[in-house]
Nucleic acid binder design. Structure first.
Lengths: 195, 195
DNA sequence: TGTACATCAGTGAACGCGCGTTCACTGATGTAC
DNA sequence: TGTACATCAGTGAACGCGCGTTCACTGATGTAC
């Protein structure tokens, strides 16, 4: 098969290879040159699709939020339709996303490199968050407060789920990490649902 | 005043300048050379005190845990001695430490650079965590479970406080960030203490 | 259907940059006698 | 109290490295007529 000069799908290929490099080596040593090498393309080919290095990171982060949003949506759809079950399913999917894609999660939540005011990134992250927070809110039986005030119960649940994800993926909470997968899953659900 | 050839206190000076550089510019662009320049010393002077670059980051992270531990201890001592008040005071101090030292907090909890198996770092982080978790446990009125099982209520409170800190410092939770300092403090306490 | 030409997509060499580390060194300090 | 000498603390030049970017380019594609 002759290799075409024009790739046809290079943007998606570069994003996918960037995702793999990210998980394998970590944010802190991501390199355009290595990603391009993985994709079998010269490292200057990036410019046509992403502008500069930050553009790639921004697109990669948006891609991560899209995947998180999809995972949450799937979990939501599979949960039997009681609000409480939906909160548990969403929360579990959130934590599992973090554990399954630790570097991506770190990029999405801790990194200063992506441009979070990029419209596509903002749209993807708002979509993931807002549906998740809606699940949380309904699971807590809290009515949506007026626009200006803080929805304390919903924020409390979100904070707990987010913190649980991060403490687990950074290796704290050794008592939970020591469990086998099934029991760990149960412990995560217990922690999400405890009064 | 003649500048001494031997500094006398260079290790502490370098750590302090590293801390300032960290907060001002961020983990991702920390540089030995710039820190040394701040301290008025050649960049090769590091080797005598920290070995290599990772050694400095490890020492800096340990320093962060010591300061977190001190802040928690101070908050604990000032709280009127009801267990619930102590949980609130510790939790608030935890969140305020994160907001006051965002880069340090990120280094302590998300970075892969420090060597977390370094004995001094391990000791400092265990000291900060264990006293904090003890506060949480007593505030939840949960008796300490046997060594092997998971203390679900304590982990749930820790996760909530940790997640709250991170969601705030990464700019999520806009409804809380929009408040003025006093009302924000109240909202943080509400979120920590809500059932 | 053919052709001219603009645009798009990818190449590869070269660049400068800041980095951490290595090296041989020098000045200051501490200590044994 | 003096002196010899080992050790400690800091210097500054040089190194190689991988990085992202720039540049002039070439091949492929799309389109107007």
């Amino acid at each position: 098969m002759k290799k075409a000069y024009h790739h046809g799908n290079l943007r998606e290929t570069l994003l996918e290879q960037a995702r793999i490099e990210l998980e394998e080596r970590g944010i802190e040593v991501l390199s355009l040159r290595r990603i391009a090498q993985r994709a079998g393309v010269s490292h200057t080919a990036f410019a046509h699709h992403f502008g500069d290095a930050r553009g790639l990171l921004t697109a990669l982060t948006a891609y991560g939020y899209e995947r998180l949003g999809q995972n949450l949506g799937r979990a939501r759809a599979e949960a039997v339709p009681h609000d409480q079950d939906r909160l548990v399913a969403s929360g579990l999917a959130y934590v599992e996303f973090a554990l399954g894609h630790p570097q991506m999660f770190t990029l999405m939540f801790a990194s200063k490199y992506p441009n979070f005011s990029d419209p596509a990134l903002d749209k993807a992250s708002m979509a993931a968050f807002s549906s998740f927070i809606e699940d949380v809110r309904r699971g807590r039986k809290a009515s949506k407060p007026d626009e200006e005030s803080v929805d304390v119960p919903a924020m409390a649940s979100w904070a707990r789920i987010h913190g649980l994800a991060l403490l687990l993926l950074t290796g704290r909470m050794r008592s939970v990490l020591a469990l086998d997968p099934d029991r760990r899953r149960e412990a995560i659900i217990d922690i999400i649902t405890v009064g």
